[in-house]
Nucleic acid binder design. Sequence first.
RNA 1: GGGCGCGUAGCUCAGUUGGAUAGAGCACCGGCCUUCUAAGCCGGUGGUCGCAGGUUCGAAUCCUGCCGCGCCUACCA
Length: 653
Amino acid sequence: MFLQLEKQIQSAFREALTLRFGVDAEIVLEQPKQASFGEMAVPVAFQLARSLKQPPKKIAAELVEAVGDIPGVAAMEVAGNGYINLRLDRGAMAAGLLNPSGEATAAIPGKTIVEHTNINPNKAAHIGHLRNAVLGDTFVRMLRARGNTVEVQNYIDNTGVQVADVVVGFHFLEKKSPADVAALIAERRFDYTCWDLYARTSQYYKDHPESLAWRAEVLHGVEAGSGELAELGHLVADAIVNLHLATMLRLNVQYDVLPRESEILHLKFWAAAFELLKERKAIYFEEEGKNAGCWVMPSSAFRGSDEANEDSKVIVRSNGTVTYVGKDIAYQLWKFGLLGKDFFYRTLIEYTDGKKIWVSTDQEQPAGAPAFGRGSMVYNVIDTRQSYLQDVVVAGLRALGFDDQANKSIHFSYEMVALSPRCCADLGIELSEEDAKRPYVEVSGRKGLGVKADDLMDKLVETAFGEVASRHPEDNEAAQLAVATEIAMGALRYFLLKFTRNTVIAFDFQEALSFVGETGPYVQYAAVRARKIFRKLEDRGEAVPDFRTALTTEAMARQLAPGDKNDELWQILMSAARADAVVDRAVAAGEPAQVAKYAFQLAQTFNIFYDAFPVLAEPDAERKLFLLWVNQYLALQLERTLSVLGIAVPAYM
RNA sequence: GGGCGCGUAGCUCAGUUGGAUAGAGCACCGGCCUUCUAAGCCGGUGGUCGCAGGUUCGAAUCCUGCCGCGCCUACCA
């Protein structure tokens, strides 16, 4: 609705601009600071003041005159130092909201790949991983809401150092056989077992540096692909991947495909990329210095041409093995369909809605897998600490001559989740004097320092359950638990989304467990209340009207005719109408927090409406009909926005 | 040392890309449940936008220099 009107307004202004002043300029529309100023503001007069050498106010006045009437715009006035404020035709606008003119978001050509989660499959997921997954999943939902075709990838580093370290723990420290480990996997929370074991192994390396030879031995065994060590590696990684998927499913996060490092190795993805890199001279063999014997990428490729030349980046180690960055370059090439190779795929699990997760495999499979990869745009959701490595990957693409794809490789970076000092105290973690003075403490898997994702979710569910049970003692426990779970997950997703990407979250239980104020449950509560009005209406034996036939444009115009209460309703409708534009802007900015912020504001708007307009008690028939529709529209926009955030609307609260 | 980021109310954070009187939540103080659920609503207290310059009609926002903090700067990922 807005988008169409905005375009009309922009072209009308542009035309008037050339006609009157003989200049062309992009017309930016903004929301006025105060609702009383109108619905839209055009600040273009400020822009032109310098080049035209005229005061903004004068330009604005002349421009208003030149523009004349625009359909859908009721009035234009010059305000402040040169703002042009627009007031829309309320009746027409409201009728447009009731009967959308089929301007459904057009399908956007091409496929966007979003890679997120990417947790090392060697221990339980923690809050930092949750931020990644929720950020990625929400961005996917935003893109899809805008009409993009999106493929969600979750890369599994199942042959890396971290998995190897847990295998070291089982094999060398605990003397466990694959059968012993399989038995452990069958028990509950194998990922928690590995969490502790990983920390123990890391400590053991510290105390016995010579034991690092074990890691090399395991890595070798895992890469060979056979033998007991390889078997252990597979057992651990596969089991933990399944647990991670279950953890993320609790938060409503799903994936399309899991490309694994084991296949990148076995299907010789790296070998293909290596040949390409050598052939196009993107990397060279270092003969001297500390990187002698390695294949390296010169720092000039990814650091700009500054004098302060840093070290080159090692891509292939002197022992012939490839670094993670090397494999990532191969993977990135595959994502764009530039490698000339593909994985084989098999179904890993099927979600209850019928959607499947596919996983890469090195064995040929019967046909049936969708076509993965070959994206036209790639977003990699990876924390900001890896910016340097992501720069190297993009530089690799560029050095290979794939400039276009390099430009379409977006590092969707975000800051880490750290622990507040109070949170550490809650967890019983003792901090060094130095750490205690810091505003936050970094999570460390090696030290076993962190809040496990499932623990946090359990705690949230428990807290929410207490609230639900006390408010609705009449309901059965299973239903209470279902509602509590939706509230808990809504609270968690919102908590992780309300911060902008480059804000460090200093995690604090008290804040994360809050259900009041700017939280997910606040927004859910608004949606629940809106639905409740219709249920109550039906309880009273009244049907929900068919608004499209019952509400005429004239009735809308009457109900919105200027006046205190009507102005308020008009503002309410206008904030609800912004939903699509907000998602649009948030996609462009790459900032899911903007959608979260809007959801909260819309919930606030609803609560104001709820408080100021007792819908069911309204005596006037037309007024009541109109208020019911406003309520329905608010409910619709709230639910749509919540769904973009991946937050459910509980049956009651 | 170099690269990236941050510094806004007591606390945690927004700030629509340079615009109108700098906002929200929490905390604190005071009101509102016989009326669609108070996980709510209304009102109040609270600001040298780190500091100093500069750019211009106009700066929390852009530039320069300081101060403080964080992350990165591996033949780990």
